Computed example of a mutant assay.
Amino acid sequence: MILKRMELRKLTALLALSSVLSACSTDGVLDMDGPRPTATLAPMSAPVSAPMSAPLDPAVDDEESGGFQRLVPSDPYLVGYPRMDPPASPMIQLSAEEADCRRQLEKLDVAYTPLAPIDEGGACRIDQPVKVSAIGSVEMRPAATLSCQMALAFAEWTKKELVPSARWRYFSGVRTIHQGSSYSCRKIARTSVASEHSKGNALDVMAIELNNGDKIDVKKPGFFSFRQKGLLNNVRADGCSYFTTVLGPGYNYDHRNHFHFDIKDRRNGYRACR
């Protein structure tokens, strides 16, 4: 009985050795001096919701999935990242209108960098863009890539409406404007119409940080947040004097967490403030 068990074990070992040797044929041997065979990975079972090239924003957390969400073109955080556009050549010639616009930016103490022309095809272009990093003592985070006319409208709104409203309601100046999207080559969500972002004529404001440490999210405030509501309602309504479009929470789901400001050229001076 013992001999039979030993013979059975030997037979099992010989079969295992035989299978290993057959798998290690010359076709499967690694050539240390030549190219290594390429491994083929099986596809992941979980679907990927966005291209792998889409950046991840550590500040945008998808609570439903329990992790960070990928960004999509309709997400205002898509261009919240600083763009790496090259500076403008010192030899570039400015039109009279553009030169006057930049002089006005300087009068308002706007810190900006002239950029080289942006042309990504179609409507996605700014001939003479600027990157705004601060408006007086108010930091723009991240710096916003805009047309000069949009930069000027936003600077005037910040100086004449936002800062005074914050001082009146919170007794504090404004430290930082957190923007989620300036220039971005994209269309209006669910349409074939080019967004004003694609021309550098739009800016999305996500939050306003005060010198006293308060941070006011544009997302619809709680029922008893009277002071926050008052400030947001004021600056939103006053924006209609500087922009041709002002959209925010309550307009639709896409604008639930930010103000969208733009200077779209509309007929008969029409303004869309909602």
Rank of each mutant, 00 (worst) to 15 (best):
L8F: 13
D127T: 14
L210P: 00
W168F: 03
C273T: 06
R70S: 14
L105P: 04
N211M: 08
K160G: 01
Y253Q: 13
D217V: 02
I216M: 08
S181K: 15
Y251M: 03
V235D: 02
G122K: 06
V132A: 05
M44F: 09
S53F: 08
L105K: 01
V132G: 02
F259D: 02
Y183N: 07
S172R: 03
K199W: 06
P43V: 09
T245H: 04
S172A: 04
G213A: 03
S165Q: 14
C185Q: 05
M91W: 15
R274N: 14
R70P: 14
N233M: 04
V48D: 14
T113I: 13
K10M: 07
D109A: 09
P249W: 03
A96Y: 13
L94A: 12
D214R: 13
R175Y: 05
L78G: 09
A46C: 06
V130H: 01
L162D: 00
L232V: 03
L115A: 13
V60F: 11
K160P: 00
D27K: 14
W168I: 00
V79A: 14
A42W: 01
T244F: 05
L146T: 02
C273G: 12
F223E: 07
P87D: 12
F226H: 09
V60A: 13
A166C: 14
R167Y: 08
G173I: 01
D217K: 04
A50I: 04
A144G: 12
R5M: 11
F261W: 01
A88I: 08
A272T: 05
N212L: 04
V205A: 03
